[in-house]
Simulated scan of single mutants.
Amino acid sequence: MNRLQVSAGRYLPGLLASVVVAIAARSLASQYGAPVMLFALLLGMAMNFLSTDGPCKPGIDLAARGVLRLGVALLGTRITLEQIASLGWHPVLLVVVSVVLTIAVSMLVARAMGFNVLFGLLSGGATAICGASAALALAAALPAHPGKERATLFTVIGVSALSTAAMIIYPVITRALGLDPIDAGVFIGGTIHDVAQVVGAGYSLSHEVGDTATVVKLIRVAMLLPVIIVAVMITRARGGHQSGERPPLLPWFAVAFLGLAVLGSLGAITPPLQAFGSSLSTWCLVTAIGALGMKIQLRELATVGIRPVLLMLGQTVFLAALVLLLLWLGN
């Protein structure tokens, strides 16, 4: 038996277990209309006995790291410069300002509340950029520290729940404020955490609102790259990961993310390939969050208390108020 077969035999059980969780989560999400990441997380947590020392552990660890990074890299297939340019400079500036301020304020407030400042970066980035996907991407770039996996999973749960609530509440807000279709799309796309909920809320109002919201959301996804670079710089400043190695300033998944976005902008990636890359990215991220769920114990999440909940709720409200303020100033 050669080395490749030995490696495959070592990782296959855990990878298959993670994929099974992803398939079950996608099925449940399509049936009940709930966030697929949340289902993957809960199903993974129900199978956490697999992550203890045993045949599944190596593959689960690989899914939580390697498959996660592949999913983040493939997010680049969703973005083209043409999509960003089609809305003009104001929505781009609005997104940049709102993302930077939300993350900065989150880090300051997290520190004031007695949390590790990295939790502020993780939860603030998830709120400001693209929900669970951003939480997983930032977790992959941040240094290892006690409670990191628990913080990541709590962030995924929080943004998934808040994103679902926002999908219901924010269309009502846009109608109450009398926002025109473009401003409504910018508000929906600039505030709701996850892409699926942005699409659901936007197109529930009108096709024009949905199109605008989707493009604005993709601009937020594009902000993932510079935020990952900042996270890696923090990791390097703190001496790297537990291995003692200083990670590269641009990890491979960030380089791949940028490369795919550039190729898509140049027309080198056909629409069918873009659709395939986006779908594969989702599968990878759902598989990874299922694996992360297997690595956590429910009793550990139960100890987080009310303060992290208040922090994430405050981040969500701050982002919504900030985007409305920037829309008002721009009109």
Rank of each mutant, 00 (worst) to 15 (best):
Y11F: 14
G14W: 01
L16C: 10
V20S: 12
A24H: 08
A29L: 04
Y32C: 03
G33E: 09
V36W: 14
M37P: 12
M37V: 11
A46T: 12
M47Q: 13
L50P: 15
P55C: 04
C56F: 14
C56P: 08
I60G: 09
A64Q: 03
A73F: 00
T77G: 08
T80K: 01
L81P: 03
E82C: 00
Q83E: 03
I84Q: 01
P91A: 00
V92A: 12
V96R: 00
V100L: 02
V100G: 00
V100A: 06
L101E: 06
T102H: 03
G114D: 08
F115S: 07
N116Y: 06
V117Q: 12
V117R: 13
L118D: 09
L121K: 11
L122E: 03
A126G: 15
A134I: 05
L138G: 06
P143K: 09
L153G: 15
V156R: 15
I157D: 09
S160F: 00
S163N: 05
L179H: 06
P181F: 04
G185T: 05
I188N: 10
G189T: 04
A196R: 14
A201P: 09
Y203P: 02
Y203A: 02
S206V: 01
V209F: 02
D211N: 05
A213R: 02
V216Q: 06
I219L: 10
R220D: 00
R220W: 00
P226E: 05
V230G: 05
I234G: 05
S243R: 04
R246Q: 13
P251V: 01
G259A: 09
V262A: 15
S265K: 02
A268N: 14
A268L: 14
L273V: 15
A275M: 08
W283L: 13
C284R: 06
A288C: 04
I289E: 11
G290L: 01
K295T: 10
R299W: 11
L301T: 05
L301D: 05
L301K: 07
A302K: 07
T303C: 15
T303V: 13
G305C: 05
G305L: 02
R307C: 10
R307W: 09
L325A: 14
W328K: 13
L329P: 05
